[in-house]
């Protein structure tokens, strides 16, 4: 049995309604860390990267009202990608070179007009997915008992084997498999819900 699929209005729609603070929290929870990462990958320092994220979010909040429900699916994502790309590029160009932490590949990609825009877009989409996974993880984390989450975490990010983890957590191997699989399943569901909302592939 799968959990009843929640029917939600698209996040975009809710965002464009304006005055919907909650939608913003959801959106920013995913989007802000992503912009910060992109900015840092472009050579910005943490605090500057935070500023960029703020600027981008503000600019999105100004323009998002014009998006409508009937807008073609997928266009929002493309638009968001463009906005992000431009914002990061602008921000990076404004920062004095000597404040940048070395020139990165992303920096070059963004600033070289001859560069392969598809590569940039792919990179941004990868980052999007990453941000969604992490946002989903933050949520899923709250839904499971401590031990269950730990079992998942240690056997994935923690690079422990199932056996090691079972020993550390005093669980049976079966319990570890159960725990990590259930978390993973839920993570997939939540990630899927979010991607539907933000129209990711």
């Amino acid at each position: 049995m799968s959990k009843p699929m929640e029917t939600r209005e698209s996040l975009l729609l809710r965002l464009s309604h304006g005055r919907c603070e909650r939608a913003w929290y959801e959106f920013a929870d995913i989007y802000r860390p992503m912009i910060v990462r992109l900015a840092k990958q472009s050579g910005l320092q943490e605090s500057d990267a935070d500023d960029v994220a703020q600027v981008v979010l503000v600019s999105i909040s100004r323009t998002i009202g014009s998006w409508r429900k009937d807008a073609k699916k997928g266009r929002f994502r493309a638009w968001l990608t463009t906005v992000t790309k431009n914002a990061v590029r602008n921000a990076v160009t404004r920062v004095p070179r000597d404040k940048l932490v070395g020139e990165t590949q992303l920096f070059q990609l963004l600033n070289d007009s001859s560069s392969d825009q598809d590569a940039v877009n792919r990179h941004i989409e990868t980052e999007f997915m990453r941000a969604v996974f992490r946002s989903a993880a933050r949520q899923v984390r709250t839904e499971f008992a401590e031990a269950t989450w730990h079992a998942f975490w240690r056997t994935t990010v923690g690079e422990s084997s199932v056996d090691e983890c079972a020993e550390e957590l005093q669980m049976s191997r079966g319990a570890v498999y159960t725990a990590r699989s259930r978390v993973m399943r839920r993570l997939q569901q939540v990630t899927h819900d979010i991607t539907m909302e933000v129209e990711l592939p």
Binding site: E26, K40, Q41, F133, R141, E146, W153, R154, T156, I194
Partner: peptide, 26 residues
């Protein structure tokens, strides 16, 4: 998934298992 959840040098928003509970604003 694992790769996405693993912090790298660009991450500020760590999802760390040692934390009691992570806020879910989502």
């Amino acid at each position: 998934v694992t790769l996405s959840l693993t912090d790298d040098e660009f991450d500020g928003d760590t999802i760390d298992p040692s934390l009691p509970v992570v806020t879910s604003l989502t």
